[in-house]
Computed example of a mutant assay.
Amino acid sequence: MPMDSIRKRNPQAALNSLEAAAISARGGFACMFSTAEEYEAALISERRASGRYTSRWPLLMFIGCAMMIAGTVLLLT
């Protein structure tokens, strides 16, 4: 059905449909954070929750240092 015949039949319904589509489109661009600090805090907490900032290096370094100290003590005794 051509667009002209739809406009001639019920222009108010077409206008309401267009307004609803515009509101829906604007809602897609809305930001849920009011400041950059809120966004960064949420981003960091989400990354921490997903385990991105966890690392095994501190534990491995501690074990390595402990083994070196134990080896040094055993060599000197």
Rank of each mutant, 00 (worst) to 15 (best):
P58M: 10
E40C: 12
M1T: 11
C31H: 04
T35W: 06
P11M: 02
W57R: 09
Y39Q: 05
R47T: 01
Q12G: 01
L59M: 14
T77F: 12
S50M: 09
M61D: 00
D4C: 01
R48S: 05
N10I: 02
M67F: 13
R26Y: 02
I23Y: 04
S24P: 00
P11C: 01
E37Y: 13
A36E: 03
R48N: 03
S5R: 08
A21Y: 06
L76E: 00
A13P: 07
M61L: 14
M67P: 00
A49R: 09
S45Q: 06
S55L: 14
P11Q: 05
M61A: 07
E40D: 01
I63H: 00
A42S: 07
A42E: 03
L75V: 13
R52H: 13
M32P: 05
T35Y: 04
A41R: 13
E37C: 11
T54G: 06
S17H: 14
M67H: 04
L75N: 01
V73F: 11
Y53T: 06
E46Q: 05
S55K: 14
S24C: 09
F62N: 03
S45T: 12
A49F: 11
M32A: 07
P2H: 08
F33R: 01
I6H: 07
T35K: 03
L59R: 05
R48F: 09
L59Q: 09
Q12D: 12
A30L: 10
C65L: 15
M32Y: 01
G71F: 14
R9P: 00
G64I: 09
L43D: 00
N10L: 03
Y53I: 13
A36G: 05
A42Q: 04
E46T: 12
Y53L: 13
A70L: 10
G28K: 04
P58W: 06
F62M: 12
I44Q: 02
T35A: 02
M61H: 04
A36C: 12
S17V: 09
P11W: 04
M1P: 06
A13W: 14
A20Y: 08
K8Q: 07
A30V: 15
S50F: 10
S50P: 01
P2T: 08
N10D: 14
S45N: 03
S50I: 09
F29V: 13
K8P: 00
G71W: 08
R7M: 11
A14D: 04
S34F: 06
G64P: 00
Y53H: 08
G64V: 12
I69Q: 02
F33M: 02
R48L: 13
D4H: 03
M68S: 02
R48C: 10
A21H: 04
A21N: 05
L18N: 07
G64K: 03
S34K: 11
L43M: 14
P2I: 05
I6P: 00
A70C: 08
Q12R: 11
L43R: 09
R47F: 07
A25L: 15
T54N: 09
L15C: 09
A36R: 08
A36W: 07
L18Q: 09
S55D: 15
G28Y: 00
Y39H: 09
T35I: 10
A20T: 08
I44A: 03
M67I: 15
S34V: 08
A20Q: 12
M67V: 15
F33W: 13
P2M: 08
A13S: 15
Y53C: 10
A22N: 06
I69M: 13
G28A: 03
R26N: 03
A30S: 05
L43H: 04
P58V: 10
S17N: 11
N16T: 07
